[in-house]
């Protein structure tokens, strides 16, 4: 995962609700972060465990990651929400940089990559189970589509997502991430990212969980 930062990787694992361990190797040190159900539940590096281990790994500038799908945590040492931990780690990094006189921000700001890589778009287009799809940005601008009437498809999903977010808010739920619809003749899937929304209609044979995992 060249170019991916550890906070990004953590965010991806949590938003994808993965349950696995991520091995982080930096020079001669190896750490592990354990995820379950969209949360970090345990972390170890050397003699450290829990949040201390996480903050240690989040300080590392370079490293490589690998996934260990068969590993499971022996203990639960991290109780805090992952977003709170990442926020605190970022603040600590800023403070450290200010104390050392360096700018906390990289000298060259790289532009974000497109939300969905081209090959995934091609994959969606080629997938016989995907009947139609639309992808739009947070302002509702249509970016990609495969549909006879993409505007109508996008508008339908956009309104439904607004209603469901409001329904969730009234129940005290958080941000909407995914919606899976199942019917006898069709299935549908919406994935809401911070900046993009991807929605698709599929045949009833499509595995929505697999599609969501691929796209998120």
């Amino acid at each position: 995962m060249l170019g991916t930062s550890l906070p990004d990787l953590i965010q991806m694992q949590c938003l994808n609700m993965t349950s696995r361990a991520v091995r982080v190797d930096a020079e001669s040190v190896t750490g592990r972060i354990y995820f379950a159900g969209g949360q970090i539940i345990h972390a170890t590096v050397g003699m450290l465990s829990g949040e201390a281990a996480l903050f240690e790994m989040l300080r590392w500038k370079y490293g490589t990651f690998s996934f260990e799908d068969d590993s499971s945590a022996q203990h639960e040492t991290v109780m805090r929400h992952w977003q709170s931990i990442l926020l605190e780690a970022a603040q600590l990094e800023d403070e450290t940089a200010l104390q050392s006189g360096a700018s906390p921000y990289p000298s060259v700001v790289s532009l974000p990559e497109p939300f969905m890589p081209r090959n995934l778009i091609h994959e969606l287009r080629a997938d016989p189970e995907v009947v139609s799809f639309v992808q739009s940005d947070s302002e509702g601008i249509l970016l990609e589509s495969q549909s006879e009437d993409p505007e109508n498809l996008q508008a339908g999903f956009a309104y439904v997502l607004q209603l469901l977010q409001l329904a969730g808010t009234s129940l005290g739920a958080e941000s909407l991430r995914e919606v899976h619809f199942q019917g006898k003749e069709h299935r549908a899937l919406c994935i809401v990212d911070y900046t993009h929304t991807t929605a698709m209609v599929t045949t009833p044979k499509a595995n929505l969980a697999n599609l969501a995992r691929k796209l998120a």
């Binding site: 609700m17 969209g38 109508n152 498809l153 508008a155 339908g156 999903f157 309104y159 439904v160 209603l163 469901l164 409001l166 329904a167 969730g168 009234s170 129940l171 739920a173 958080e174 941000s175 909407l176 991430r177 995914e178 919606v179 899976h180 619809f181 199942q182 019917g183 006898k184 003749e185 069709h186 299935r187 549908a188 209609v201």
Partner: peptide, 29 residues
């Protein structure tokens, strides 16, 4: 009203569905 309208909108503009699973950060509906 919102849940019924959401399913009704799907019926009218996309397709008829029997159920929906709405995933929030920490909760599902």
């Amino acid at each position: 009203r919102r849940l019924v309208t959401a399913l009704g909108t799907m019926d009218a503009s996309i397709a008829v569905f029997d159920d929906m699973l709405v995933k929030f950060d920490e909760h599902w509906l």
